[in-house]
Design a protein around this nucleic acid. Structure first.
Length: 937
RNA sequence: GCUGAAGUGGUGGAAUUGGUAGACACGUUGGACUUAAAAUCCAAUGGCCUGUAAGGCCGUGCGGGUUCAAGUCCCGCCUUCAGUACCA
């Protein structure tokens, strides 16, 4: 009876599904443990071998925790709203829901073959109305909340209304829009309903604002900063331009400091924390207000160097700055307008590509230095970004290289305010060694003291204060898309109104086309049934909008990150129709104990999810304010592409070794056409694509050899390897073991199918260990000392490895164990039973089969993890080599029944040791069972 | 530029608080079995020296240092990868 993995795997996968082996209960006497994967976007291409890497790791850990007696929650679902399904819909007219459903079915089929211990009964799909009902509800909660800086948390907007009606807004310390004006209680009470709504909107955690956004014309939508890479859209690589639109925004900036502080409390990878820290971009400094000469306007700037304020010789505004038009003198107007037009034309990408070119123009206006009252010329320049700080800077050329370059280029003064520093060729930006001079009351002070003093003096003048600035901007939350969550919002008199939970979800309407309307409205504008009737409390036809109780609905949809910002909590109580999750469920599961996923979500999903979690915490819906205690970023599995070399302008291909003799183009060949010695199947290649039908080949040694390149696994590079094929040929257990064996979990590593034979033959050997020829055969014989030693060595190593997420080395440990037990001819049940449990997290199918054959009627999944006993590793005597001075080596034989002190004494007393150590006795000897003696002279 | 991670055989990678570097696997070579191939099994496999053996020397990106002992610790470089970038 040989190892027939196909039959075994199908059998146990069916068994697990039928018995509900991995179903988690929301209450248990066992301690809870929540293992989560980042749920996939179900793309049309299906899974390749890189996708399941993290799932296998989390599955090993989940299964291990079950063996260790935990009540484990290990769910899976789909992040099923998104652009590709919609793009496909635009091209084909196929409803995205249909495509999505098909893709999910395919994903599920592929995932099932790998034997994961997911609790599929808790599956969530972000595009499922039952799920997005709650996404919409959370949106309404954000709308009904404001951020109280004094309490340092979000509070109900109703509480704010009470304050307004009793005290006005003077005492309110909130995170709000900058254009909020002060009003009294009397003012508030005299406001019309609409005026009140307008004011409140400036305080809400999600608000409407006319904002400059990243508009992608090709995609027809707005993108968040993290959806733009190198100035083009992350998806599709299309250009992005700035555009002003009325959009929903999330006031994530209110949480900037807490998002930063929270990082100290969670066990996440340092690189990921660093990129969130950079993204939030906290910088300490001061805001300074400059009065403008001959104008009532003022210019606010943010600076990290208030100590250098006396070095200010000009100011620079971003070309988009609001004051530019107002300040520009008639004489400079033509030049300024031309400059603004020129910068607006340049795409974000161009602007980033050439940072070296210095450009700018003088406005003709002057500001007044707060201390010297000297005139300071006001320039505009595109090196100042509208989106950072206040979009204006006080330029101190002697202390900042960009200001220096700008000043040099335009012949502006470069006053030196540093003691003993030469600034004739470059600016001096070294804070640590700064001694201020030429600066009135700051003279002689260092950076720290001068900063403090400058802020103090500014505050005295009422022209500035210490300030902390964050790079993190509020997140735009509107997308001009079809395939996303509709907002639970309708408009009365232009003001947004939330739709009550009992009427949710607001479902996506049917539309004929998935493109924006001819009038430029989002695709939902095409729906003829898409308005809200406040009398009937339901979605009704557009035609009735003129009716007094029928109002237009919001036509935008939510961005991709909406659903993924709380899905981890919804798994806890996925089917609850009355609440997003019951307090009972959330208080039981609390948070994710282990979260595994890619590092590409560092500044997107993982930041937004932390933000929503903190918000839900503030409003007392969740008990903890960080959703994941530990996070691991699995590395990418890369593909090994095959390259063929076509001689330019011909259909002739030259083998790799000869390619340097010709001018060639590199072309990807499908990896399935290459054998293990890099030889191309020439006939197969001709048939592969029509344009190669008549291809000719220049061979070397009768073969066509391809070049190899390690790169991202992708359909377009023809280097994709599917897990299904691997499962069929080698089995899911081999796939699981091999993915772990490839290397450390966090590291990127290339896939090489050939290597899988190693783990495959290990499984065959394991099978043989339990079989006597064709018969299953284990005995009740007492295990030998060697048997026990092998077993306990393996228990110890595997347990340590799993706890440390070093899954790769345990696979080696298993191989060594099986080799040793084979040599020992061990078929003792007392050894083989615990061995099956050790292996089962990694190779669950074969383990379950062997476990079953060993006479166990229950699944191996809940069997207790074997207990390590150190005594089996201790031998009566062991020889230890001792090296000294590199050259001298001798062996010391010690009894390991001795305790540490006795061993130390024995070594000290050892005559030879004394000799070899040149008369000096060792000061310290360390003996660990199974380890080297450590002799310190 | 800044931030972070990492450099070990032909390849993927092991190596606990500093303690026999290269576990385990792939690949390669030789052998067994076979008409042959596949599969399986056995042996060898960092480099160099000595005819073999025994043994020796050199070896963890480079140059120094600490230590009886360094892949591991310290200082200074080089290279690669990832993230981020006119952030005031």
């Amino acid at each position: 009876m040989s190892y027939d993995f196909n039959t075994i795997e199908a059998k146990w996968q069916k068994y697990w599904a039928e018995k509900g082996t991995f179903r988690a209960e929301n209450n248990s006497t066992k301690p809870k443990y929540y293992v989560l994967d980042m749920f996939p976007y179900p793309s049309g291409a299906g899974l390749h071998v890189g996708h399941p890497l993290g799932y296998i790791a989390s599955d090993i850990y989940a299964r291990y925790k079950r063996h260790k007696g935990f009540n484990v929650l290990h769910p899976q679902g789909y992040d099923s709203f998104g652009l590709p399904a919609e793009q496909y819909a635009i091209q084909t007219g196929q409803h995205p829901a249909i495509t999505t459903k098909e893709n999910i079915a395919r994903y599920r089929e592929q995932l099932d073959k790998i034997g994961f211990s997911f609790d599929w009964s808790r599956e969530v799909k972000t595009s499922d109305p039952k799920f997005y009902k709650w996404t919409q509800w959370i949106f309404t909660q954000l709308f009904n909340s404001w951020y109280d800086n004094d309490a340092n948390k979000a509070r109900a907007i109703s509480a704010l209304e009470v304050v307004f009606s009793e005290e006005g807004n003077a005492t309110v310390n909130a995170v709000c829009d900058e254009d909020v004006t002060e009003f009294t209680a009397e003012d508030w009470n005299s406001f019309s309903s609409k005026e009140k709504q307008e004011v409140l909107l400036k305080y809400r955690l999600t608000y409407l604002a006319e904002t400059e956004v990243n508009w992608c014309p090709q995609l027809g939508t707005v993108l968040a900063n993290d959806e733009i890479v190198n100035g083009v859209s992350e998806r599709g690589g299309y250009p992005v331009v700035r555009k002003k639109m009325t959009q929903w925004s999330m006031r994530i900036s209110a949480y900037a400091q807490r998002l930063l502080d929270g990082l100290d409390t969670i066990d996440w990878p340092q690189p990921l924390k660093d990129s969130q820290t950079n993204w939030i971009g906290r910088s300490e400094g001061a805001s300074v207000t400059f009065n403008v000469k001959d104008h009532d306007a003022v210019i606010d700037v943010f600076t990290t160097r208030p100590d250098t304020i006396f070095g200010t010789s000009f100011m620079t505004l971003a070309p988009e700055h609001d004051l530019v038009q107002k300040l520009t003198t008639p004489g400079q107007k033509a030049e300024v307008d031309a400059y603004i037009e020129a910068t607006a034309k340049r795409s974000e990408r161009d602007r980033m590509a050439d940072v070296k070119t210095i450009s700018g123009v003088f406005t003709g206006a002057y500001a007044e230095h707060p201390f010297t009252k000297e005139p300071v010329p006001i320039w505009i320049g595109d090196y100042v970004l509208a989106g950072y700080g206040t979009g204006a800077v006080m330029s101190v050329p002697c202390g900042d290289q960009r200001d220096y370059d700008f000043a040099k280029h335009f012949g502006i003064d470069i006053p030196n305010i540093f003691e003993g520093v030469d600034i004739s060729s470059e600016a001096f930006a070294d804070k640590e060694n700064t001694v201020i001079g030429n600066s009135d009351f700051l003279n002689g002070l260092n950076y720290k003291k001068a900063t403090k003093r400058a802020i103090y003096e500014l505050e005295k003048l009422g022209q500035g204060e210490g300030k902390i600035n964050y790079r993190l901007r509020d997140a735009v939350f509107s997308r001009q898309r079809y395939w996303g969550e509709p907002f639970p919002v309708y408009y009365v008199d232009g003001m947004p109104q939330m739709i009550d939970l009992k009427h949710l979800p607001i479902q996506l309407p049917e539309v004929e086309k998935y493109l924006p309307t001819e009038t430029g409205e989002p695709p939902l504008g095409r729906a003829d049934v898409w308005a809200w009737d406040t009398e009937k409390n339901e979605v009704v036809s557009n035609d009735l909008i003129n009716h007094t109780s029928v109002f237009p609905l919001e036509l935008n949809t939510m961005p991709g990150w909406a659903g993924s910002s709380y899905y981890f909590n919804r798994y806890m109580d996925h089917d609850n129709q009355n609440e997003v999750f019951s307090q009972e469920a959330i208080n039981y599961w609390k948070d994710v104990d282990l979260y595994i996923g890619g590092s590409e979500h560092a500044t997107g999903h993982l930041l937004y999810a932390r933000f929503w979690q903190k918000f839900l915490f503030d409003r007392a819906y969740v008990p903890v304010d960080e959703f994941a205690k530990k996070l691991i970023n699995q590395g990418m599995i890369l593909g090994t592409s095959a390259m063929v070399y076509r001689i330019s302008e011909t259909n002739k291909f030259v083998s790799k070794g000869l390619k340097d003799q010709y001018e060639t183009d590199e072309i990807h060949a499908d990896v399935s056409l290459i054998n293990s010695s890099d030889e191309l199947d020439v006939q197969g290649f001709k048939k592969w694509r029509p344009e190669f039908k008549d291809a000719e080949f220049i061979l070397e040694d009768g073969k066509y050899v391809v070049g190899r390149e390690v790169e991202k696994m992708s359909k377009s590079k023809y280097n994709v390897v599917n897990p299904d094929g691997i499962c069929e040929q080698y089995g899911a257990d081999s796939l699981r073991l091999y993915e772990m064996f490839l290397g450390p979990l966090e590291q990127a590593k290339p896939w090489n199918t050939a290597g899988i034979t190693g783990v495959n033959s290990f499984l065959k050997k394991l099978w043989k260990l339990y079989h006597n020829g064709d018969e299953f055969g284990v005995t009740d014989a007492e295990p030998t000392k060697d048997n026990l030693k092998t077993l306990h060595k393996t228990i110890k190593k595997v347990e340590e490895d799993i706890e440390n997420f070093s899954f790769n080395t345990s696979v080696s440990t298993f191989m060594i164990a099986v080799n040793e037990l084979t040599t020992q001819k061990c078929n003792s049940k007392a050894i083989l039973e615990p061995l099956a449990i050790l292996i089962s997290p990694y190779a669950p199918h074969i383990a379950e089969e062997l476990w079953n054959k060993l006479g166990n009627s229950e699944s191996i999944a809940t069997a207790a993890f074997p207990v390590f006993d150190a005594k089996h590793l201790v031998e009566s005597t062991k020889q230890y080599p001792i090296s000294f001075n590199g050259k001298m080596r001798f062996t010391l034989e010690l009894s390991l029944d001795l305790n540490k002190d006795e061993i130390e004494a024995a070594v000290m007393a050892h005559e030879k040791t004394q000799q070899q150590l040149d008369g000096r006795a060792p000061k310290k000897v360390i003996v660990v069972p199974g380890k080297i003696v450590n002799v310190v002279g």
